[in-house]
Amino acid sequence: MLIEARGVKVRIGSRTVFDNVAVTCESGQMTALIGPSGCGKTTLLHCLGLLQQPTRGQVRIDGVETTGWRDSARRKFWRHHAAFVQQDYGVIDDETVGFNATMQMSILGRRLPADQRRLDMALERTGLPGRSAELAAHLSGGEKQRLAIARAIYKSADVLFADEPTASLDPDNREHVTALLRQLADSGTTVIIATHDERLATACDKTHDLASPPNGTGTASAG
């Protein structure tokens, strides 16, 4: 899935977060959004993930301009195509590992049966085999981050948006999470990461620096 920003500007109150940003994120690649704290990495990630409307410019998905989409169209994109990995893991502590991986619930709030084969595969790939019935509260921080990635694997997401996915992790878990993101990209997923982790950025195929040049337009380069 091709995700593009063209001439995107975000202004919050009297402050311009960034202006005239252009970035292209392709299937099968990891793209890192980098720069110092406060430069707008997470804000740009949210624009690309249709979580936030830009003040100006276009966000395109497979060539289709999305900034005029209704809420129903954005929800359809999130439900069928996108997965999100948040810095705070986005895990529900008082639910099971299995439910957190599948999030199988109908619009009426009823629990739906999971595809056990897909669930087992997702947990196996993320180093959490046999823990489907365990409460997520029992997991470590690194395990919770891997559980968030298991959710993307279970969903077979076309695009994964990750906000500082290695922040606060120990070196072993940083390496594990980086490898999982690499595997997703190699399988064809579009992986877009906001990060200040230099080692993670180096592992990406492309980087987009919001701090260079100074006017905030940013640059893209091969990783």
Rank of each mutant, 00 (worst) to 15 (best):
Q87Y: 04
E65L: 01
Q145N: 06
L48K: 12
D88R: 12
D205F: 10
D19F: 01
V64G: 00
R174E: 13
E134V: 12
R118S: 09
D170N: 13
S168T: 04
A133E: 14
V64P: 00
T24G: 14
R75M: 09
Q29M: 12
G13K: 03
R125E: 12
Q145K: 09
R146N: 09
D120L: 02
I192P: 15
R146C: 13
G40C: 11
E175D: 13
S132N: 07
D115V: 01
Y89N: 14
L135F: 13
Q116S: 11
P213T: 06
T189A: 15
N100R: 07
I192C: 13
A220G: 14
R70V: 01
G142L: 04
I153N: 05
A150D: 05
A82C: 15
A211V: 07
L210G: 09
T166V: 02
A220W: 06
H208D: 10
S212F: 06
C25P: 14
L123I: 04
L33N: 08
Y154K: 08
G28Y: 08
V17F: 05
E164F: 04
V64W: 00
L147Y: 07
R6K: 14
A83R: 00
G130K: 10
T55E: 08
M103H: 02
L139W: 03
A73S: 11
I12T: 06
T189F: 02
T96P: 08
V10L: 15
D120P: 01
A5F: 10
G130L: 09
P36F: 01
A136C: 11
L200Q: 04
A114K: 08
M121E: 12
A157W: 04
R182H: 10
A136M: 11
E198D: 13
A32N: 08
R60M: 14
I61K: 01
R70K: 13
L44E: 07
G35E: 06
R70P: 12
E134S: 13
K41I: 02
E95S: 08
A137H: 05
S221R: 15
S212V: 10
T126I: 03
S106N: 03
E124R: 14
A83V: 04
L184C: 12
G98R: 05
P54K: 11
L128C: 12
A150G: 06
L50E: 04
N173M: 15
T189Q: 08
K9D: 08
A137T: 06
D115T: 01
S187W: 00
I153D: 03
R131G: 09
P36S: 11
L200A: 01
M105K: 09
A22N: 15
Q104L: 08
D62E: 14
F84D: 05
G57W: 08
V159I: 15
G216S: 07
A152P: 07
